[in-house]
């Protein structure tokens, strides 16, 4: 427990900054909604006037643009992007920090096994992810409720917003794996920014291309928001893939770190 407490204490400041930034991004876009919601309703009418084949081809057949959720879906994408960076950052940093800050000779000579240290650190990441999600979820719920003129589908809202949790868990576990896989990490952010943006761009690319194989590469596509709104659920194959990958990353983190030589200073 002492390790968990220590990690949470050390991560407190950056957690607050991240929570505020995520909600900041959310608010920034959502506050534009009232000014463009009229436009959006006009578009809806235009769409409905299109032939049905066309609507289907573009996946807009059952689109409800007049609903605030369609705009929220768009906004959330940027929250997911930022949240992914936060999570990956935590994942990469939390174990490697002991080596980077040269405190490994302090922590790892204490009477705790490496597996226990890793478990506690993973737990600390999870707790921080949960806090972030609780914060974003509440803030989003308030904003969406305040801005919506009609009733909206709360279940869909929850599905959308919870994808942040899953995406963050994915990137955190990827980060953990990367941090034990690489021999030595000196600065965290270039790695996490780079990886997240590459995945994000593959996702953007796939928004246009709609390629199934490409969709399996980017975790942003596992929780593709437009797909979720169509199915009203997460895609089971993607969810399974998510689960397997996260499990594998965590397993390898334990496995590799137990065998790792900690460099002397």
């Amino acid at each position: 427990m002492n390790i968990l407490k220590q990690e949470l204490r050390m991560g407190r400041k950056s957690l607050i900054i991240w929570c505020l930034s995520l909600v900041g991004v959310l608010c920034f876009f959502m506050l534009l909604y009232p000014s463009i919601s009229n436009q959006l309703e006009d578009f809806q009418k235009v769409f409905k006037s299109f032939p049905i084949e066309f609507q289907q081809a573009f996946g807009i057949a059952d689109l409800e643009l007049s609903s605030i959720l369609s705009f929220y879906q768009f906004t959330l994408m940027y929250v997911l992007l930022a949240g992914a960076i936060q999570a990956m950052n935590m994942g990469v940093a939390i174990i490697s920090s002991e080596v980077r800050e040269k405190t490994a000779d302090f922590l790892f000579v204490k009477p705790v096994s490496r597996n226990r240290v890793v478990s506690m650190k993973i737990l600390a990441v999870l707790v921080q992810i949960l806090i972030t999600n609780a914060f974003v979820f509440t803030a989003a719920l308030i904003i969406v409720t305040l801005l919506s003129t009609d009733a909206y589908d709360v279940e869909l809202f929850a599905l959308f917003t919870l994808s942040l949790l899953f995406i963050q868990i994915f990137f955190a576990s990827l980060g953990l794996f990367v941090s034990v896989f690489l021999r030595r990490i000196r600065t965290v952010l270039p790695i996490s920014m780079g990886v997240v943006f590459i995945f994000y761009i593959i996702h953007l690319l796939n928004e246009t291309l709609k390629d199934e194989k490409l969709g399996l590469i980017s975790p942003f596509d596992y929780f593709n928001l437009s797909e979720i709104s169509k199915k009203m659920n997460y895609d089971s194959l993607n969810f399974l893939l998510w689960f397997v990958l996260v499990g594998m990353f965590i397993f390898l983190t334990f496995k590799l770190f137990a065998r790792k030589d900690l460099p002397s200073i």
Partner: peptide, 16 residues
């Protein structure tokens, strides 16, 4: 390792 280290005190050459 972890069991043994209960009774070990270690002072490294470089302290951080």
């Amino acid at each position: 390792g972890s069991e043994i280290r209960r009774d070990i005190g270690y002072l490294p050459s470089e302290v951080f």
